[in-house]
Design a protein around this nucleic acid. Structure first.
Lengths: 200, 200, 200, 200
DNA sequence: GATGAATGAGGTTTCATTCAT
DNA sequence: TATGAATGAAACCTCATTCAT
């Protein structure tokens, strides 16, 4: 039943179906048939709207990335205090919407493709550099450039590790636990630096 | 030319070829043909020695796991001091041999399969619980049960995150940087706990 | 914006686009999408005006045939002398308009389909019998029935061969060279028959 | 049932099946399935032995070309007289084995692809230049360079035209009629040139 | 023990055609 | 009249697996 203005709707449907499929079936068993059946459309439509499977996968990763970016931007726009801003980034990465088994499992699948796909690598790099930049910018108001870089990298690593854990252990740890562990890292580091400075 | 006693040789060859292929081609493009060509044998040999592709993949993940286990056991056997033992675990996970782009990329690929393969999930869980057990055991001699659990989880998460980074960023950070960041986390946490205790 | 009286315009557009596409893309890559894009209309329009792809292809071959027919009729209407009439047929088949790479390539494509399409075969046969009839009729005034048939067949064969050459060699030989070779065949044959008759 | 040394057998089988399929089904309906069914093998085998459909098609055209070449070489090796050599070429092109509806229909199909395939074009050009060279070489011993070129081109064109006719008209004319018409062209031209020379 | 020819299911993609708008 | 979204059959191709040698 052909209609007009279906493009954005269909694209969203298909991307959602792709995330679901990667989560439930795995990246390797995510076929065009799987995706289209899940979206309730024919296989041909994927090529109509995306050109091919690879383009759909790229669009899917882009969607995950955009969601993450939005979550960060929204939360950052509501605070100016540096500590609050670092917390905002942490909260964004472990928001209930994003830190859910389906998107996180999809993330892990894409990470595993990154070493073998130029396009996915580019997306991943853009994401990484944005995240680091947000963190370093806020941290720079609290500590030295060098320390800011180190803490940003630490926060980032711990968050990546928790995402892996979420996917691999089927939803463990919870968003709250994850936020807590990361925040703890952040404040412990801050404290340690402060004390070190006092000693000098 | 048929030979006797080829089994362990062939199995090792094929597992090595599988890791190479996953690293260079990606998990999805790692076919039986790829692997056998790389090992310089026919495709049929894989079924002869492993029963099928899935069994070879499982054996390959088991190999990665065994290597990691060996590295840990070797280093742990040389020290008794709790702090040294925690450092030993960290050093094992970032040893130059294991924290290399090829095995780490293969690891990431397996992680991405874990949610969809019972057999791989079992291996992963065994590995995780061993690692946690080693860390908690050592930490328990330094801090409370609760803190030990937290720090063990923190160290594990940060290590996972660094492995992801290594695979995704093509070898960044270096083993030394990774060890440093993890050790720093460990000692900062220890310090924070000590000071908290003093305050009480 | 719907218009009235568009039928003949659209039909001509689509037929032209089909010839262009066959010439540039080949028969196999001449898809409904190709054709409609070239004509600047939607794909649906083809079924609206032609019923289907096959009907469009038949109409296209019919167009090529009609052009050839017109060229012949026009030139034949301007002469009554038998030799001139044979030359008129030759000139028609190698007129600059028809003996051009685009229509000739399309012709060759249709020839290749003729053995497998009843409808195209019918068109081809009509064309052939008209051509033979024109030639034999004129030749009959110059030579015996048997010789007329032979020369007509010879002229026809040589013309077909030159059309193949034009398509296959990308426009070689030129119309002038082709006319020359065919005329030469005609007059040489005529001469030979005359001398043979004189000898008897 | 795997065997050794099957390659040449399978390749021949598949090429034969391709020619049959083009003849019976047409180029467009000659699918991998068609061909493999006709050869009594699975579809996969085509990719095993030829890499892909296109390579099989190229190999098929090459086969047609090789057969033609062989026929020419065999006949030419048995005569030295220039006239006999020209006749040998004509006889080769209209031998009962080659001037048969199946290979000729396949030839026509390939001709139609030549304008759109670099690889087929190359094969076609090699074939053409060999044929011309054979003819011109023999003719050069009978007439001037210029006349040799013209007659060679004429013989070639008339032969091409007769091949088209054979495919398009389902086997008409017969090999004998075709040889006769071409030989007649040859000797009539020779005669005409001789008389022209005498007149001067 | 080892090979690689052979299979056939299943993957992605293309395409003529239909139809609501 | 005209569009282009949507379908689904069928095309080419890949690949794990089997098995005669």
């Amino acid at each position: 039943m052909p209609k007009v203005g279906m493009e954005p709707i269909r694209r969203r449907q298909l991307i959602e179906a792709t995330i679901e499929s990667i989560n439930e079936m795995g990246f390797g068993d995510t076929t065009v048939k799987q995706i289209s059946a899940r979206a309730g459309v024919s296989t041909g439509i994927i090529h109509h709207y995306f050109g091919g499977k690879e383009d759909l996968l790229e669009a899917t990763m882009r969607k995950l990335l955009t969601d993450l970016r939005e979550e960060n931007v929204n939360r950052l726009s509501q605070c100016t205090d540096p500590k609050e801003r670092v917390e905002a980034v942490i909260d964004a990465n472990f928001s209930d919407r994003l830190f859910d088994i389906a998107p996180v499992t999809a993330w892990l699948a894409f990470w595993a493709q990154v070493p073998h796909s130029k396009r996915l690598r580019r997306l991943q790099q853009i994401n990484k550099s944005r995240l680091h930049s947000s963190l370093r910018h806020a941290l720079r108001q609290l500590v030295s450039e060098e320390d800011a870089r180190k803490i940003a990298f630490g926060i980032d690593s711990i968050m990546d590790g928790l995402w892996v854990s979420c996917a691999v252990n089927g939803g463990t740890p919870t968003p709250a636990q994850s936020r807590e562990l990361t925040r703890d890292y952040f404040y412990t580091q801050l404290d340690a630096i402060k004390r070190r400075k006092e000693r000098d």
